[in-house]
Design a binder for these strands. Structure first.
Lengths: 356, 356
DNA sequence: GAAACGATGACAACCGATTGCCAAATGTTG
DNA sequence: CAACATTTGGCAATCGGTTGTCATCGTTTC
């Protein structure tokens, strides 16, 4: 009969050995605290998460021990057993777009304040990456904030059925959304240009898959018809500074005297290109951007733009998502939030050139 | 005698009930696959992670079942049992600083390519937040990338003993680091200014806790002595665009004709302020920035700056960290990487004004 | 044809917490 | 002082994987 020669070790004995071997201090667990206080692990767990369920004196002992051991709960284990991960995914189409910097900052601040972790994912403007990231996050996050989604309405709805979602700048019935009201700013911008005497105006469109671009164009076209001016649509252009060159050339070629760009990146790119071509802004051509991103105020000339409360939009999206996650707090969660915008006039717009 | 009236349910039975109740499809687990293939869960686990340990036919069956069930491993469970989280923490002092946008982009891209998740944390320029974030990440990440750390050398070393760390722009013996070689670019910038005839030059310093700022100043002071020109240190200034106003005023007041700013944010802020005060750049005052961030090329005038390969630095940091995590790959991991920089001359520097 | 062997897959412990259930301890009341 | 209500805290199952150990099976070699 074979006798086990390897002695059976208790968990703490093995841990102690591992510690000794590695020479590094092993993070404390609730079991360590339990052993130190002479109570069960479950009691420790309760003392820390449901303080009322535990005698105040026991709780004090446990808290002291936890402090002494420098205890931090293991978030993985917590997530596994409780089902809540304490993380929120934030999907952006392009990390390098400054628009999202402000957004990310807003979500980051608000999430941290609520004790959540932000999982930042760059979907590279691809609907496939977006969909697979969502599937991935479904397990590792409690909710998702999706900005400028490239997915179809159906796909978004289906995803929202699996995990709480809040969209930003993408309005789909049934999915809570934060929408920055750039369409209404668009007509403000149009009126601004009209008041400066412009009658031939172009809209430099964003990606075809961008709902924002479509909505802005619709609003702009409607307003133009209402005011009896001509606005033509050019593009599409990728929302990057480099696209500005093509946009500028297209605008010049079309003979307009003013243009409204899908976003500030394109507008700033246009400014650079126009300068290269010695076309003066705003004397020869007025340019309006959108979003008021970092840089819009110090480019040359400073950019007239439709300012969006970007960071605030991020914060609101987080609030809406957290309200969805913890319905206990009385405040009935709204499902749609419209963020106001306004036109900020700087140096890139001016009177229309008199007929040459 | 009390008989249990509640029937004991197997795991799958309960899951099925939960599915029915929630009306939503529950993510598949290895147990589902195991049941479907008539093998043990452990076999499924091996088939997916150690394919060689499993018969090729069994493996094929398992893979087919996994695909059919649309199986995705639960990262929490994986992390808990294996000890590896598949996540890397990235600590930045200020998310809104465009310098870090490029950095974050670099880390994000490289991490994603390696199948890791990025946990982004804003430490708000606080050493305490930085320390507590590290303690937190110790459990939830496999490694940490720390940019421009505000911690003491000892604290960093201690942290590095607990979890793999790579620093960026912070050199501590014993901690792998990526260092952007701005000090050497600093003397390039100085020579550039000297060649333009400047003899009275100021360095607009960054935060006192920034090692980068100190190193740049040291390099600059040494080079200045070597060339026999006067360079005075002004500041410190917070690395934000708003600080540029104070910096500009200080520079003007000190009577210098050129200044080298700690970073582009300060430099751009200075340009704005100088313009407000009708001080011409570069005719009355030359300005050199550092980093070549987004915006440096289109501000007014375009900024002469010491260009840093920021995104690349992020990628290298990730590579170094991953090499540390997976030592299997032969390439001996370097512990220090110096990123070259160069001076990019644009419009913000020009000949020194002739004596008035 | 038997012994030795490698490949294969099942069993079960484990990671670090949460949580339902129940027993013991405590306090309250008549 | 007994009976009952209420805390309080322990036990054990569970989350979804990973991994060490071991039994089994088919194959190879002498």
């Amino acid at each position: 009969m074979a006798i086990r020669t390897v002695p059976v070790l208790s968990r703490s004995e093995r841990n102690a050995m591992a510690m000794q071997a590695a020479g590094t201090e092993r993070p404390a667990t609730i079991h360590d605290i339990a052993a130190m206080c002479g109570v069960a692990a479950s009691t420790v767990s309760r003392a820390l998460s449901t303080p009322d369920r535990v005698n105040i004196r026991t709780r004090a002992r446990i808290e002291a021990a936890a402090a002494e051991l420098n205890y931090t709960p293991n978030s993985q284990a917590k997530a596994l057993s409780s089902g809540r991960t304490g993380a929120v995914g934030v999907l952006v189409p392009d990390i390098t777009n400054p628009f999202y910097f402000d957004l990310i900052r807003g979500t980051q601040l608000q999430l941290k304040a609520a004790g959540y972790t932000q999982l930042l994912v760059d979907t590279e403007e691809s609907d496939e990456v977006e969909a697979s990231s969502m599937e991935q996050l479904r397990k590792s996050a409690d909710g998702i904030i999706v900005t400028a989604s490239r997915l179809s309405d159906e796909a978004l709805l289906a995803a929202a059925a699996k995990i709480p979602i809040v969209t930003i700048n993408r309005d789909v019935a049934g999915v809570p959304a934060v929408v920055i009201d750039t369409p209404s700013a668009t007509s403000q911008a149009l009126d601004h240009l009209i008041s400066l005497g412009h009658t031939h105006i172009a809209y430099m469109a964003g990606p075809l898959t961008s709902q924002s671009s479509t909505l802005r164009w619709n609003a702009l076209a409607a307003a133009a018809e209402d005011r009896g001016v001509e606005v033509r649509r050019l593009g599409p252009f990728a929302p990057k500074k480099q696209s500005g060159a093509a946009a500028a050339d297209a605008a010049v070629h079309s003979g307009v005297t003013a243009c409204i760009a899908f976003n500030d990146l394109i507008a700033i790119g246009m400014l650079q290109r126009l300068r290269e071509r010695s076309i003066r802004v705003p004397e020869d051509m007025s340019v309006v951007g959108c979003d008021d991103i970092f840089g819009a105020d110090f480019c040359n000339p400073p950019l007239t733009t439709m300012a969006s409360p970007i960071e605030q939009a991020g914060r609101v999206a987080v609030s809406m998502l957290l309200a969805q996650l913890n319905p206990l707090a009385g405040g009935g969660s709204r499902s749609r939030s419209l963020m106001p915008t306004h036109l900020t006039v700087r140096g890139s717009t001016g009177p229309a050139p008199t007929a040459s």
